[in-house]
Design a protein around this nucleic acid. Structure first.
Lengths: 345, 345
DNA sequence: GTGAAAGCGCTAACAG
DNA sequence: CTGTTAGCGCTTTCAC
C-alpha cells in the first residue's frame, strides 16, 4: 500500500541500498554517491510520496526515536510541568511514548514492559514507590536502556536521578520569612508520610536552628492526611484553629504544599482573618493558581519544568554515550513573593 | 542480546511459529495447540525472560498498539484535561505517542509525519489552524489511518470531530444568570478571533433574544487581544471601567474565558468592588483554579476530559471498524455555581 | 560509485 | 497438532 524504498529504488533505476543511502545522505563506512543519483532518487521519493517505515528502520537499526516517559498522573499540574520540560527538550530528536501509572503497581509494570518491548531509546520515569516493581526497573538496566528517574529515587538502586531540592525549599522559606521579620513561624503538615516530606522537615529544622528560632518556630503536624475535599477543609480549619489559639501569636504560616495553603486561604477568608496583615502565608510548590493575581500566594517554587528539562538532557547525553556524573541532580527552588506575605511590623 | 522467539522455540524444542502461537494463545485460522506444548513454551519463555520485540511484531502485523496524540500545548490545563481523558480511555489497549505542536506549523507537520512513519494505529489531533498543514491531514486519511480531531475542525475537510459545545456554553450562562434574576448582563470579550468565540457570541445572542434581554444585555468587545500579563491586566481594567460607568448598572458579567474572569476578580479585589454583591461574575471553561475554595469562580464547565474520552472512544471504534456516525460530537457544558454569582435582590 | 544478499524478530499462509 | 517458508521494509556488510 504505502510506497516502499524498493519501489523508489526501482523507479529511480537503482538498488535499494543505494536508494537508502541517497535518501538519508549518510555515508557509513565511506560510501560516496554521485550527486546525480542522489538528486534523482530524492526526486522520485518526493514524487511518489515515499515515507520511510520507522518500524522497519528501527528493527534493522535498533533506534526508535522514542523515549518512554512515565508519570504518576495527570491530575494537578505537577507531572504536567515535568512532562512539558521533557517534551521541549527532546524535540525534535525524540518523541515521548507517554504512560501514566496512577499509582497502580500492575500498571506501572505493564507500561514499562511495553517500553522495553517497543525498544524505546531511553526512559524517564517517576517511580511509584511500590517495591514489588523495583525488579522491572532492574530489567530496564539489564537491557541497557538508558534510564533517568525523576522526583524520587528507588531504594538500593543505583540510577540517574533528577529531583527537586525539598530540603532547601523549606530552608529558604524559613530564611525568607525570617528576613521579613518573622520569628513565630509554624510549618503545617498534613501528616502524609514521604521521603520528600522528611526532606522538608529537615530543611525547616536546619533553618530554624541556624536562625535561632528554636523557641519561636515549630512544626505542627495535623496528622489528618487529606484525600477528599472535605478532608482538606477540615485539615485547614484545624491548622487555623491551632495557630490562632497559640501564644505568642504566630505571624507566619508555611504550608507543606500549595494546595494546603489554598485551603487555609479559604478558611481565613471565611473567618475574616486578614492575610497578610494578621498572618503571612507561604506555600511550597508554586503550582499554577498561585501566580494568578486573584490568588497571589507566596510560594517556594519547585522548578518542575527544570526537573523535566534536566532529566531529558541527561537522558539524551546517556543515549549518546556522553560522560555524565552519577550523583543525583537536585534542582534549586526559587522563592516567589506575592500578596500573602508581608514584613512584620 | 535480548532473548528472541527463535531461541525460546529452540529451547522448548518447537518451531518458532508454534512458539509464537503458544505464547500469544491465539488461534487465527484454527490452529489448536496441545496444552503441554503451550505450557512448556511459556515456561521456557518465562524462564529465559523472553520479551517480544514489538517493532518486529508491528512490522509483520501492521499493528503497533500506539496512537498518535497531538495537542497544541501543555501550558494551561486545557489540553492536559483532554489528554487525561484520552490516556484513561485507551489504556490498556494503546499507548499514546505524544506530540505538542505549540502552534508551530512546521512542528505540527513534522510530528504527523512521524506518526505516519511510526505506523500508529490511529491519531487524535488538535489542529493548529494553519491551512498550509491541511494537506498533511489529508495524507493521514490517504494512509487510511483512523483520525479524530478534537476541539476544532478543519475547513473543507470531512473528518471525525469531537468538540465542546461553545454555543450552548454561552447560552446556558445567560440562562443561568437570568434565572438568578439578572437582566443587565454584559458578555466581555478580549477581541481574539476564533471560530469558537463566534460560537459563544451566537449562543449568547440566541439566549438574549429568547429571554427578551435585548434592551439590557450586551456584548462588550474590549478588542485588546491579550498576550502578556500586563495586557490581561489592562484588559480586565478596561472591562471593569466599562461596566461600572454603564447605566443602568450592570449586575452580571460573563467573561469569555476563566483566565479573563480571574483577572477581573483581581481588579475588583483591588478596587474594593464586592463580588458577588455588586456584580455577579461568571467564567467559561472552568479551569482548575476556579474550583479552589479561595477562588470559587462560577463558571461554565467545558468538559474537556469528556472530549478526550469521547475522541478516544470514537477512535478505538474506528480502529476496530465498528459503525460510527459522521456528525461532529459536541460535548455539553455544565454550569458550576460557586461564590462569584448570587441571585439579584 | 553501485548492487546483491543477509538479517533485524516476528507473523501468517500453507503443508503435512 | 506442528513445522516450513516466505515475507513485513529497512540497513548494512561485502563484493564488484
Amino acid at each position: 500500500m504505502a510506497v516502499t524504498l524498493k519501489e523508489v529504488a526501482r523507479m529511480a533505476g537503482v538498488s535499494p541500498s543505494t536508494a537508502s543511502h541517497a535518501i538519508r545522505g549518510i555515508h557509513p563506512g565511506k560510501r560516496a554517491l554521485s550527486a546525480l543519483t542522489i538528486k534523482r532518487v530524492r526526486e522520485v521519493a518526493e514524487q511518489l510520496g515515499y515515507r520511510p517505515n520507522l518500524l522497519a528502520a528501527g528493527l534493522a537499526n535498533n533506534k526508535t526515536f522514542t523515549i518512554g516517559v512515565m508519570v504518576a498522573n495527570l491530575r494537578g499540574n505537577f507531572h504536567e510541568r515535568i512532562l512539558k520540560g521533557i517534551t521541549e527538550t527532546i524535540y525534535p530528536e525524540y518523541t515521548p511514548l507517554l504512560s501514566v501509572h496512577n499509582n497502580q503497581p500492575d500498571r506501572e509494570h505493564r507500561e514499562i514492559e511495553f517500553f522495553i518491548g517497543k525498544h524505546v531509546d531511553g526512559i524517564i520515569a517517576a517511580y511509584s514507590g511500590y517495591q514489588q516493581n523495583i525488579h522491572i526497573y532492574r530489567e530496564i538496566q539489564k537491557y541497557k536502556i538508558p534510564l533517568v528517574l525523576v522526583d524520587r529515587g528507588i531504594e538500593d538502586f543505583q540510577c540517574h536521578l533528577v529531583k527537586s531540592d525539598y530540603y532547601n525549599s523549606a530552608y529558604i522559606a524559613v530564611e525568607t520569612l525570617n528576613k521579613l521579620g518573622h520569628r513565630n513561624i509554624v510549618f503545617a503538615l498534613s501528616g502524609r508520610q514521604s521521603e520528600n516530606t522528611n526532606m522538608l522537615i529537615d530543611g525547616f529544622k536546619a533553618a530554624v536552628s541556624e536562625k535561632n528560632l528554636n523557641e519561636s518556630a515549630e512544626i505542627y503536624n495535623a496528622d489528618m492526611p487529606a484525600s477528599s475535599e472535605d478532608d482538606s477543609k477540615n485539615l485547614a480549619e484545624n491548622i487555623v484553629d491551632y495557630i490562632k489559639s497559640k501564644k505568642p501569636q504566630t505571624t507566619a504560616l508555611l504550608a507543606e504544599r500549595d494546595w494546603l495553603a489554598y485551603e487555609i486561604l479559604a478558611v481565613c477568608q471565611e473567618r475574616g482573618i486578614k492575610i497578610p496583615q494578621e498572618i503571612s502565608l507561604m506555600g511550597i510548590e508554586d503550582s499554577d493558581p498561585s501566580a494568578l493575581r486573584c490568588v497571589g500566594l507566596s510560594s517556594v517554587r519547585i522548578e518542575l519544568h527544570e526537573v523535566g528539562r534536566r532529566a531529558a538532557d541527561l537522558l539524551v547525553k546517556i543515549i549518546n554515550s556522553a560522560e555524565v556524573g552519577n550523583e543525583p541532580l537536585a534542582v534549586k527552588p526559587t522563592v516567589m513573593l506575592r500578596r500573602t506575605t508581608s514584613p512584620l511590623k
